[in-house]
């Protein structure tokens, strides 16, 4: 594979995590405009742990995921009782606050004679763990794909379990779910923490792939893109968000024909697609249909 293809595939993998976090919330009936904030928390935290304190990447990723989960749990605590657009706006407000806090964050220390760390709007340079440890781009792609496979396996296990049915129940008919004795607030807080951890994992991988991050990487555009990925791919299966990311980054950015008109083509396709399939390509009905026919 040439470097360009590896780069595109790695990006598909990275953004799949944040798309999956938006998907998880959508399945539980919540619309978030703010998953970019937890992606950003993961990116900054992961970068700080490896580049400034010399932690190994796996440990830094675990710590960053914990922080992402904690952050979304804390944001969800006062807001998950809100409905629809109210919740969506509270996530947007939280995410814009996070972006501004990243702009205000000046926290640098000297590492091997070089000043490293977040420098406000100037961004955070030199997150070089994978280069310092001689990891080739193809191996990094392997790591990203491996982690994605683990996450997807987790999704499929949950979907087949009682918990999966509970999640869809809470998402589609919260009153009925509550009448069956399900503690909706608790389920949603758990979903929020898991979504925060997922987005943060994507962020850590993104920061180490790019070696440089800046606050505007984590603006509302990323958040709404992840939502769009989850929705066009389909809300019936965890493959849906992946399909959404592949459609956008893979088919359009990868094919150089559309490159200049990428947003015009993609935007029109999304709007048209949603007219015919408002819950995405792989929606619940399509997934049932496929399941009945596949071995």
């Amino acid at each position: 594979m040439d470097a360009y293809t590896i780069g595109v595939l790695t990006n598909i993998g990275l953004f799949s995590f944040v798309a999956l976090s938006a998907y998880l919330l959508l399945v539980a009936g919540e619309l978030s405009f703010g998953q970019q904030a937890f992606f950003g928390v993961g990116a900054y935290a992961g970068g700080i742990f490896t580049a400034m304190y010399g932690w190994p990447l796996p440990l830094a990723a675990l710590a960053a995921m914990t922080l992402g989960a904690l952050a979304q749990f804390l944001v969800g605590l006062p807001t998950l009782r809100l409905r629809g657009l109210y919740f969506a706006m509270s996530t947007l407000a939280a995410a814009e606050m996070a972006r501004i806090l990243f702009e205000l964050l000046h926290f640098q220390r000297e590492v091997k004679g070089e000043l490293t760390g977040p420098d406000g709007t100037q961004g955070f340079r030199g997150i070089r763990w994978i280069f310092e440890h001689g990891i080739e781009p193809i191996d990094y792609l392997g790591m990203v794909v491996g982690l994605l496979a683990v996450v997807l396996a987790g999704f499929f296990l949950v979907e087949r379990s009682r918990l999966g049915a509970t999640l869809r129940g809470v998402g589609q008919d919260p009153e009925l779910a509550a009448s069956l004795g399900i503690d909706i607030q608790r389920v949603k807080l758990g979903v929020a923490a898991a979504a925060g951890a997922l987005a943060a994992l994507g962020g850590v991988l993104y920061a180490h792939h790019n070696t440089y991050i800046e606050p505007r990487n984590f603006d509302i555009m990323l958040g709404v893109h992840s939502l769009a990925y989850a929705l066009i791919g389909g809300l019936g299966t965890a493959f849906g968000p992946l399909l959404g990311v592949v459609l956008d980054i893979g088919a359009l950015e990868g094919s150089r024909v559309f490159h200049d008109y990428r947003m015009i083509v993609f935007g029109g396709l999304v709007a048209l697609l949603l007219v015919f399939r408002p819950r995405g390509l792989l929606d619940e009905r399509m997934v049932r249909w496929l399941r009945a026919r596949l071995p």
């Binding site: 769009a228 015009i264 993609f266 935007g267």
Partner: peptide
Amino acid sequence: MIAAMVASFALWMQ
């Protein structure tokens, strides 16, 4: 509601 909102965001990009 979500489909309408995401579709309107797609046109924003256009």
